[in-house]
């Protein structure tokens, strides 16, 4: 049987492990330092641990890094990495280099339960949640780790549907005993799972991105089944009433669908419902997926939509499409073809 991974354990979890072994309490911080601040890959390399500590750790644990199994490079420099995440399960992470920043888009689940009409990941259904270790392994195990300036939880899966492991991964990424990243360089995306979003807002300092895609409830119900459970209006109320401070940012993701959510009526309603929320909107071109009834708005319409929103006082930007030729662009990540078919109950 495979041993449990140390990589991905929080300081609190490491403290419990060392206490269980009867090792000195400070050993936990030493292990955290080796896991997250040094470039080693085995427990044996943790040279300031006692021989007994290394023996005990090796007996019960492995270091726990997983190398990527495949990489594809786009003509625009975007790279898509494939990682195994258990038996016949795979995830993808997209590395997006730009002039002044380098972003890694990480996955939080294998597949997704949310079934959004426009998303390729949703078409493969849900296989499993990633552990914190599997999430941060995507950061650690690519060649560009040292170049990264930003991390976005916008890959496969709904991060807040895996809140416990996502919060642990954020703790490891931002703690002084972990990677020590500023939370202002990390953005977690959600479609608005309210209980988990409340927890994320209260217990993390990272930025929040909400997948909105239309301000109208009935339209959103058709595009995103989650609207039948957690309404956008309730999501907005929570954000409006939460003290985000000066540094923390909320953005709304808005994929532009031709003739569906790209009209002046939508601009007007967006201005109305976002009143009182310090935020920005990221417009995204739709990248068509097989069998979809949706099309992307034209560049002219998108441009006008952006101008109109900015004129209404809502800071609006258009996200560049990156990695489309290798299916690494927004909404295209999928490992469906690699996943063993699940037991169906229908």
């Amino acid at each position: 049987m495979a041993k449990e991974a140390l990589f991905g354990k929080t300081l609190g979890e490491l403290q419990k492990i060392v206490a269980g072994f009867g090792l000195p309490a400070y050993t936990a911080r030493q292990i955290a330092g080796w896991l997250y601040q040094k470039d080693i890959t085995t427990i044996d390399e943790m040279s300031n641990l006692s021989k007994n500590a290394r023996l005990l750790l090796n007996e019960h644990y492995e270091f726990g890094l997983t190398p990527f199994t495949k990489v594809q490079t786009s003509t625009d420099g975007t790279r898509k990495y494939l990682f195994a995440a258990g038996d016949m399960k795979f995830i993808e992470a997209a590395y997006i280099p730009e002039e002044e920043r380098s972003t890694l888009c990480v996955s939080s689940q294998v597949g997704c339960k949310m079934g959004c009409l426009f998303c390729m990941t949703g078409k493969q259904g849900f296989q499993t949640n990633l552990t914190a270790g599997q999430i941060i392994n995507q950061v650690r195990s690519i060649p560009e780790t040292a170049k990264l300036t930003n991390i976005v939880y916008m890959g496969m899966g709904e991060p807040l549907d895996n809140i416990d492991e996502v919060m642990k991964s954020l703790e490891i990424m931002t703690a002084d005993w972990g990677y020590g990243w500023s939370p202002k360089r990390i953005t977690v995306s959600t479609i608005g799972i309210i209980p988990a979003m409340r927890l994320f807002l209260a217990q993390s300092q990272c930025h929040l991105a909400v997948s909105m895609h239309t301000p109208f409830e009935e339209e959103r119900q058709r595009l995103m089944p989650i609207e039948n459970v957690y309404k956008l209006s309730e999501v907005l109320d929570i954000i409006r009433n939460f003290d985000l401070g000066r540094q923390r940012r909320v953005s709304f993701e808005y994929i532009m669908f031709k003739g569906i959510n790209d009209t002046p009526r939508h601009v007007k309603e967006l201005a109305r419902i976002l009143n009182g929320i310090r935020c920005r909107i990221n417009l995204i071109r739709f990248h068509p997926i097989p069998g979809t009834p949706l099309e992307s708005s034209t560049d002219e319409v998108i441009e006008q939509f952006m101008i109109d929103l900015n004129e209404k006082g809502i800071r609006t930007t258009l996200r560049a499409s990156r990695g489309q030729d290798i299916f690494a662009a927004c909404g295209l990540l999928s490992t469906k073809e690699l996943v063993k078919r699940q037991q169906e109950d229908y």
């Binding site: 597949g111 997704c112 339960k113 949310m114 079934g115 009409l117 949703g122 078409k123 259904g125 849900f126 089944p225 699940q342 169906e344 109950d345 229908y346």
Partner: peptide
């Protein structure tokens, strides 16, 4: 139903 069923049926 499950995500798989809903997506496939849709």
């Amino acid at each position: 139903g499950s995500a798989e069923m809903v997506v496939e049926t849709r």
